[in-house]
């Protein structure tokens, strides 16, 4: 007689992972929302004050980009967690599409932030750089 003890039933694992995915993705969405709210307040304040125009504008955009990248990292962590259970091909396809979008966006945002930060450190205006992101 074989006695099998199921320590962690698959349904429990699925439920636990689903909960974790929701928590991690909500955290990512919350970070992006807070970043957008913060940038909104800063833009409105800067627009009303109209002092330190371009430097202030660039600083706010850079911070918004950082919030977006941080939120994306959380959402990608959720995607990785989701791969622990693969219920159907449709869901796997959707997961692959979402992960591809997030990874590409994360890469481009990271590159933009690095370029803008380098330009700010040089004291230039990142929005006036020519095509290809190289300073003039």
């Amino acid at each position: 007689m074989i006695v099998s003890v199921e320590l962690l039933p698959e349904s429990t694992l699925r439920e636990a992972i689903s909960l974790l995915v929701r928590l991690v993705e909500s955290a990512g969405a919350l970070i992006i929302f807070i970043g957008a709210g913060w940038a909104f307040v800063q833009f409105v304040k800067a627009g009303l004050r109209r002092r330190d125009r371009v430097a202030g504008f660039n600083r706010i955009r850079l911070s918004l980009g950082r919030f977006l990248v941080l939120g994306l990292e959380f959402q990608l962590a959720g995607d990785v967690l989701r791969t622990a259970v693969a219920p159907s091909f449709t869901e796997i396809g959707q997961l692959a599409a979402i992960a591809a979008i997030r990874t590409a966006l994360n890469y481009f945002l990271g590159r933009e932030i690095a370029q803008e930060r380098a330009e700010l450190a040089r004291g230039g205006d990142p929005l006036e750089r020519p095509v290809g992101g190289k300073p003039s």
């Binding site: 909500s26 969405a29 957008a36 833009f43 980009g65 977006l68 959402q75 979008i101 997030r102 966006l105």
Partner: peptide, 17 residues
Amino acid sequence: AVLLDFLTAAGLVRLAG
């Protein structure tokens, strides 16, 4: 450029569900 940043943020929030 600012509007596009915010639209990207909105798209990412929408993708979270």
